[in-house]
Design a protein around this nucleic acid. Structure first.
Lengths: 348, 348
DNA sequence: ATGAAAGCGCTAACAC
DNA sequence: GTGTTAGCGCTTTCAT
């Protein structure tokens, strides 16, 4: 096992001091001649500088931390791609951790990111991590919370989220336009974004004189739970005497499962029931599924930028949802294309 | 901006030496009493140990590096999930970088991972990075190459890949069983795995007396290029007087695009043309698309395990593909379920 | 322009 | 059990 060359080895090999080597590596004042000798030593020894040791000096690593809840969701996937793109442009690496669902685990992951002295941290965690995020922000590690806002954030603790109520309203509007009047919704539960979407939907529906009964909303925490949820939704509406003519899903994570549950019951989309969900995905076009989309990639970019640019105040970015109408709700409107709904930020 | 507490601060606050603090943190011999005082200091100062500094001691970080070509491909996504799962179980974080397509960029990324002294590195890069991977392995950083094998690997340089030729054969067999005889293939190009799949397919087809003409194989490097490729495939077969009755795609990355190109030409699947592709994905069932699948998640787990367990020899894992027959090739066989084809490793 | 030396936050011998 | 001391690999004064 070959020992790695250190800066000392390079110095010895080039016949200079470590200080000089450091200078040529980081661009200090050195003669052409010495620089040449040093570079020669570097390559002949295959010297690769140690980023860890460098980081201890800077006080922090050059890495951007990301703690995400569920990699397989289309939204998070695009988010990461955005984050990674900006990181790459700043020659930062992304340090990633998947929290997997409910997971109290997320506290430990955020802690690990902190221990690794990430340059900044981007998370989609729940409130349980807020105290640590605050402290990190206060001690100079910019943090950005996605899909949620933190009350009274200290400088350096940013947030970037979708106008969830507007997303709900968009859903209501589209469904109404398509002549649907009895909608059922499956949502993934208690996260603020989920609640706001459902509330926005209900409000808009009510304004349209299309009230959404309590029991027309069901919670499915996981994909496995979706089939039951959809079954109940259908049954309740039937019992109520107003069979469903639309099902909306408030999270992209459950789209496949809801669609499958519907299909398994041989409901025809959109003839029997309209289907509308969150977050665009590669196969949506092929399946004709209409969606409300959020600019995930741009959100990821923005999050990374906040980390890199370190604005001194707490920044709160709110992005707007867009409807991508395809055929799953009945009318096959020309379909505004997956427009980029990213808007300039709003400082808090 | 609050300065972070160091081990020295904790020591001072608790009235002990830094060595003692280090001991209670890492489990050395200490009195209940001192330990108590130290922990009290730790929490009252919100002390969070610096993983960077720790790493400089261990000689390396506790992070697992991953350089992936394309996050959005279903295969890579599952691979990462597998990697992350094992990393989490070993309280390692995953350091991630997306290489994006063609990218010579990958050399720089692997280098960065090396600079960060990752505990081990998992890559899907091309041969351009081999020399560095060899050096890393030789100096004690286990590396695992996915979807490719490195000739004459030094100890510590592992590989894990699919039996690509078998995948091609599986495709040929299924297509033949479904009564198809004129197949066209779209492949993403020159990577060894792509070549082996196509070769396996061609060989098996030939053995079945169903030769695959040169011009029935077309290369599409990116999704944008797929439509052209499919068009050419169809046209050439037509000109040849043997219109296609099957299209196979040798990479999961292009599945959506190939499917879209076919649909755009209003070919009916499977009535006009059978469609068979690589890598299972969440929507495949809904669309009835038959696939040849590889155990991506397990491969990710295995890769991580190789990093964690550091076997002293070079290990080469070969996994077998499985056919998941749905309806896109005509017959709707019961469909063996997405079986786990993971097999015990084979040492090289 | 370059070297000597101090020190970043932490661990690991080695004394006591 | 606990403190002292010497580093780990690197950057950064401060001299020269």
């Amino acid at each position: 096992m070959v020992r790695r060359a250190t800066i000392g080895d390079v110095a010895a090999h080039a016949g200079v001091s470590t200080a000089t080597v450091s200078r040529v590596l980081n661009g200090g004042a050195v003669t052409e001649a010495t620089a040449g000798r040093v570079w020669a030593a570097v390559s002949s020894l295959d010297y690769t500088p140690n980023a860890l040791t460098r980081g201890i000096f800077a006080g922090r690593a050059s890495t951007i931390g990301v703690v995400i809840r569920d990699l397989s969701s289309p939204f998070y996937l695009d988010l990461i791609r955005g984050i990674d793109a900006v990181a790459a442009a700043n020659s930062s690496l992304v340090m990633f951790a998947n929290t997997f669902r409910p997971s109290d685990h997320e506290i430990a992951l955020v802690r690990m990111m902190d221990e690794h002295r990430v340059r900044g941290l981007i998370v989609t965690t729940g409130e349980s991590t807020d105290s640590r995020l605050r402290r990190m922000a206060e001690s100079g590690t910019p943090c950005v919370v996605v899909a949620r806002t933190v009350p009274g954030p200290p400088p350096g603790l940013h947030s970037i989220s979708l106008n969830d109520a507007a997303a709900g309203r968009l859903m209501a509007g589209h469904l109404a336009e398509c002549g649907r009047s009895s909608v059922g919704v499956v949502t993934s539960g208690g996260r603020p974004s989920q609640i706001a979407r459902t509330a926005g939907l209900r409000q808009a529906l009510t304004d349209l004189d299309l009230p959404l009964p309590e029991d027309a909303v069901t919670i499915a925490a996981t994909e496995k739970d979706v089939d039951r949820a959809v079954g109940e939704l259908l049954a309740r509406a039937h019992d109520r005497g107003r069979p469903l003519d639309a099902v909306v899903c408030t999270t992209g994570r459950l789209t496949v499962a809801v669609h499958a549950a519907l299909t398994a019951r041989s409901v025809a989309i959109p003839d029997d029931i309209a289907f509308l969900t969150m977050d665009d995905f590669p196969w949506a076009a092929a399946l004709g599924i209409s969606v409300i989309t959020q600019p995930a990639y741009q959100m990821g970019r923005r999050a990374s930028e906040l980390v890199v640019e370190r604005p001194s105040r707490a920044v709160s970015v709110l992005v707007e949802p867009t409807l991508v109408a395809r055929s799953s709700c009945g009318e096959n409107s020309a379909g505004k294309d997956r427009a980029d709904a990213f808007r300039p930020e709003v400082s808090s």
